[in-house]
């Protein structure tokens, strides 16, 4: 059997704010297998985003260990972490965070550009994803000329185009209306199903929770429940 997409072992993250000690993540141990569609849910301040940042190597744990696709992040230097993020991870942010100076296509192919992939191969893969996500014809628009939902779909393509081991999505639907959210979720479900991409979401969005197949509840930085469920859509 291959490596889990993600494994964390007793991960802690403690922040110091003035004299106060904030324990954002408290001893989280978690394993996620390739192809899972997981939601981290919980109230504000429950540690969802901090946990995603720890998994993405954007912040270092105070204690504990994190493996992505079998690679231990906690021992990596900043260059290795950057390389790992480029090759193993995809990120989707609440505010899309597309680079405004690049077109939709250039944004989507950005990870492949950094990897040095040939232009023809790059464009073929990106155009196929544009087609699949209903964005065909918008390749050369700048982010400012796209709707929120379209921008977020470009962000999803950017996250999955490099076929990462794991896609981390922080509140991806928070800035979208229900129609745009629905389209986005459908796109991600299809990518998960067809390409086997592993998704981990941090969200408040009940629609997203309902459509996840594994729902992990966090409260005060700890996992309080970890449930497998049949998503409503599948039912």
């Amino acid at each position: 059997m291959g490596n889990p997409a993600l494994r964390t072992e007793a991960v802690w993250k403690v922040f110091h704010q003035e004299a106060e000690e904030v324990r954002a993540v408290r001893g989280v141990t978690l394993t996620i297998q390739p192809g899972e569609f997981v939601v981290l849910a919980g109230p504000s301040g429950s540690g969802k985003t901090t946990l995603l940042n720890l998994i993405g190597g954007l912040t270092r744990p105070t204690d504990g260990r994190v493996w992505v696709d079998g690679l231990e992040l906690t021992r990596m230097g900043s260059r290795e972490l950057a390389r790992m993020r480029l090759e193993k991870l995809g990120f989707i942010f609440q505010s899309y965070n597309l680079l405004p100076v690049l077109s939709a296509l250039e944004n989507a192919e950005f990870p492949l550009l950094l990897r040095g992939m040939e232009r023809e191969q790059r464009e073929r893969r990106v155009r196929e994803l544009f087609q699949r996500t209903g964005l065909a014809g918008l390749e050369h628009r700048r982010p400012g000329k796209l709707s929120g939902g379209q921008q977020q779909r470009v962000a999803v393509i950017r996250a999955v185009v490099g076929e990462p081991a794991l896609v981390l999505a922080d509140e991806p639907t928070a800035n979208l209306d229900s129609a745009a959210s629905d389209i986005l979720l459908t796109v991600m479900e299809e990518l998960n199903r067809d390409l086997g991409t592993t998704f981990i979401f941090a969200t408040h969005d009940s629609r997203l929770m309902e459509r996840s197949r594994r729902l992990i509840h966090l409260v005060d930085g700890q996992i309080v429940s970890d449930q497998w469920q049949e998503s409503r859509r599948e039912q």
Partner: peptide, 16 residues
């Protein structure tokens, strides 16, 4: 600042 954060999340090193 956020753009630089995104670039690093996407795989650029701090040096880059």
């Amino acid at each position: 600042r956020r753009e630089f954060g995104v670039l690093q999340a996407l795989g650029l090193t701090p040096g880059q």
